[in-house]
Simulated assay, not measured.
Amino acid sequence: METQQKFLSFNLGVNDTAVISLQHITEVLQVSLAEVCGVPQMPSSILGIYNWRGEMLWLVDLEGMLGYPPISQGPNLLSKMMAIVLENKGKYLGLLVRQLIDIEWLDTKEMKPVTAELFYPKLSPFLQGYFINDSENIIFSLDAKTILQAPAWGIHN
Results as ranks from 00 to 15, higher is better:
Glu87Met: 04
Trp105Lys: 12
Gly129Trp: 04
Met82Tyr: 06
Asn76Ile: 02
Leu123Thr: 15
Arg98Glu: 13
Leu77Trp: 02
Pro121Ile: 10
Gly154Gln: 15
Met56Val: 11
Tyr50Arg: 11
Val85Phe: 12
Phe119Met: 02
Pro70Lys: 08
Val97Pro: 03
Trp105Ser: 12
Leu96Ala: 10
Ile147Pro: 03
Tyr130Glu: 00
Thr146Phe: 00
Leu57Met: 09
Lys145Asn: 01
Ser79Leu: 13
Glu110Ile: 05
Glu63Pro: 00
Leu86Ser: 03
Pro113Gly: 07
Glu110Gly: 07
Glu117Tyr: 12
Leu96Thr: 09
Leu142Glu: 04
Glu55Lys: 14
Thr146Met: 04
Lys91Asn: 15
Leu123Lys: 06
Gly48Val: 11
Gly74Phe: 14
Asn88Ser: 05
Ile49Gln: 04
Ile138Ala: 06
Gln73Glu: 12
Gly48Phe: 10
Leu106Asp: 01
Glu63Arg: 07
Gln149Pro: 04
Val114Pro: 00
Leu77Pro: 06
Leu57Arg: 02
Asp61Lys: 00
Tyr68Thr: 03
Ser79Thr: 14
Tyr130Cys: 08
Glu63Val: 08
Phe119His: 05
Met65Thr: 12
Pro75Asp: 07
Leu47Lys: 07
Val97Leu: 01
Gly54Cys: 09
Met82Trp: 10
Lys91Glu: 11
Ser79Phe: 03
Phe126Ser: 09
Thr108Asn: 13
Val97Met: 03
Gln73His: 07
Gly90Gln: 10
Gly94Ile: 06
Ile84Gln: 05
Val97Gln: 06
Thr115Leu: 07
Gly74Tyr: 14
Lys80Tyr: 03
Glu55Leu: 12
Leu62Ile: 13
Ile139Cys: 13
Glu117Trp: 11
Asp134Phe: 09
Ser141Ala: 15
Ile103Met: 11
Gly64Ser: 12
Glu117Thr: 13
Lys89Leu: 06
Pro121Ala: 13
Leu57Asp: 02
Ile71Ser: 05
Glu104Gly: 02
Phe119Ile: 04
Ile147Ala: 01
Glu55Cys: 04
Lys145Phe: 01
Ala150Asn: 07
Glu87Arg: 06
Tyr120Pro: 10
Asn137Pro: 01
Leu78Thr: 02
Leu95Tyr: 04
Gly154Ala: 12
Glu87Cys: 02
Tyr92Gly: 03
